[in-house]
Design a protein around this nucleic acid. Structure first.
Lengths: 230, 230
DNA sequence: CCTCGAGCGAGAGCACTGCTCTCGAAACCG
DNA sequence: CGGTTTCGAGAGCAGTGCTCTCGCTCGAGG
């Protein structure tokens, strides 16, 4: 599996990678909607129909880019948290949030591809689910660590949400209290609200010092899931 | 201005409205990226070039739809809050949030148009700013009312954010304390994170009882800006 | 070693898009 | 009434995703 036998198989891998690379370049430059199969093929010196030997449709190419983007974001977030166990859970949380924001600012079109409006008529295939979960799992892990070491603050759930909260806890983090898991899921979504508003221009003429604003908001999110600063 | 003189001016208004209506229909059915000028013209029994007498480009038509969408959302939110002064600020806040979510679920493609990834190469014109502000202003108004009547909970800002917080307060709500305005702006963005995640499928296989989950999250947002339930 | 099928690139072509230009008819205004 | 503006129709351009066919070439099986 790691060593393709023939020259043909090797070429296929290389061409596939070259297509993705060129597509990613166009995505970064122009955005998903302006990504053109023909332009990618042109840039690679092939004819557009040849590209269909590698990706059955434009959507499949986009899906490959989506998976790569999720993994790139996940890797960035994980790298930011690596070896940071001793700075305390709240700081780790804020660090991961800042890594997500930083990645989004550096790759706006890729961020838009995965967290903006989904391409119309396009529904994410199964293969995107694990890469898409990486940041969420990382955040869960931070709270789990905190819960195990110093405990976390908790507040009560309304009765109507208790069954759902228990269900989410079983699915996502059976070792955490349901009210914490609920807060975690909400904070996860809210994080992307903050990033998206900054990225998509909703903060224009509203927030100027965005980094400081974001850091503070992320710290409040941490507080909301029960993490405390030492 | 209210009574167009000639039959020509009247016809122009009617045709413009018909174009927008048909475009909105296609937008709702297929999404912004698949909205086609030619298809709109075809459906209206005109030829595509005729449509350019009314909208100089596809982007201009989209802009008109964006403004309408902002106004529709704003109207819905304002209607939900109308005459609700006596249920208390926290309940009013949650009510407005639920109205936003309800509108988004009812008009997913229009929501994606205004709060999803911006159309590539497209930057929002001045004319979209006032309609886009309606929900934000409504939320500010609720907190202002609460502040005037019973006061709001406040927590401290980090030093690095104080100048920015004061600046935002001057711009948005000079009568509110800067830390409340800061929390308000963050909550405003976070609200759209919650709605967007639900709408764009990020909650699939994660959150099931979405209405109850959202109500709870919105209540926590209210708490975050200092509103308390009676 | 040779052969035959599978993989591959090129090219033509289809149906579609946004947009421009021109032309003739209709409506408006002095 | 006459001149000007406004409008719809049509043709056309450059671009898109995608399909199909045609040869060439590579490589696995006999």
């Amino acid at each position: 599996m790691s060593t393709p036998q023939g020259a043909r198989a090797r070429a296929r891998i290389e061409v596939t990678a070259a297509i993705k690379e060129e597509a990613r370049k166009q995505l970064a430059a122009e955005g998903a909607a302006r990504l053109s199969l023909r332009a990618v093929a042109r840039e690679l010196g092939m004819v557009s129909s040849a590209l269909y030997r590698y990706f059955p449709s434009r959507d499949d190419l986009l899906t490959a880019l989506i998976i790569d983007a999720y993994n790139s974001l996940g890797e960035t977030a994980e790298a930011a948290d690596a070896g940071a166990e001793d700075i305390g859970p709240a700081r780790r949380w804020v660090g991961v949030c800042e890594a997500v924001r930083g990645w989004a600012l550096a790759h706006p079109h890729e961020y838009a591809l995965i967290y903006g409006s989904p391409v119309p008529g396009y529904s994410a295939p199964e293969a995107t689910i694990p890469p898409a979960s990486r940041v969420g799992l990382l955040l869960i892990g931070i709270v789990r660590d905190a819960y195990g070491r110093h405990g976390v603050a908790r507040d009560r759930l309304p009765a109507e949400l208790e069954p759902e909260a228990r269900r989410m806890a079983v699915d996502l983090a059976p070792d955490l209290p349901p009210e914490v898991v609920t807060a975690l899921v909400a904070a996860w979504a809210q994080l992307y609200g903050l990033v998206g508003f900054e990225l998509f221009g909703q903060f224009n003429n509203v927030v100027v010092e965005r980094e400081a604003f974001f850091r503070h908001a992320a710290a409040r999110l941490a507080h909301g899931v029960g993490l405390v600063f030492p």
